[in-house]
Simulated assay, not measured.
Amino acid sequence: MAGIFEIAEAGGKKYFFKLTASDGTVVAVSPLFNTIKGAAAGINAVRENAATGLIVDKSQARSKSIGSHHAAMKVSTGPGARLAPS
């Protein structure tokens, strides 16, 4: 089963969404949106960009070990997916 996007109200007429994996693990939580339409647009943006997005590791450990010019990575999305240097 694929992940599930859930839109919830955060009080004060603000909304957010969370992405939950099929095993129940919360994978991502969005910032607050002023409208449900805004939250839905955020979900669509994640859907459109997640599979092709770069991972940029800005952690200190990675920067010190290989240098920041190698920190951008492409994401492989097939079976056995892993991080690969760009």
Rank of each mutant, 00 (worst) to 15 (best):
A40T: 10
F5I: 04
G3I: 04
A51F: 03
A51S: 11
V46E: 00
A39N: 12
L19C: 06
A71I: 07
E48M: 01
S68G: 13
G78L: 14
V56M: 08
P85V: 03
S68H: 15
S68K: 12
A28H: 02
N49G: 08
F33W: 07
E9K: 12
V26D: 05
M73W: 10
A72V: 11
N34A: 08
F17M: 07
S65K: 10
T52L: 08
G42H: 01
P31A: 02
K13L: 15
L83V: 15
D23R: 00
A61C: 05
A51V: 03
S22A: 11
V26T: 14
I36L: 04
A41M: 07
L83N: 14
G11I: 14
A81E: 12
T35W: 09
S65C: 06
G24L: 03
I4W: 13
K14W: 08
G3L: 10
H70A: 13
I43S: 00
G3F: 08
A40Y: 03
E9C: 11
A28W: 00
S65W: 10
G67S: 09
S76I: 14
S59L: 04
H70Y: 13
Q60F: 03
A40C: 07
E48P: 00
I55M: 13
H69Q: 15
V46D: 00
E6I: 08
K74I: 10
T52F: 07
D57C: 07
A81W: 11
N49H: 05
K18P: 01
L19S: 02
H70F: 15
K18F: 09
S65Q: 14
S76C: 10
G78V: 10
G11V: 11
K64W: 02
I7S: 06
F17L: 07
I66D: 06
P31S: 07
T77S: 12
I4M: 13
A72P: 14
G67I: 12
I36N: 04
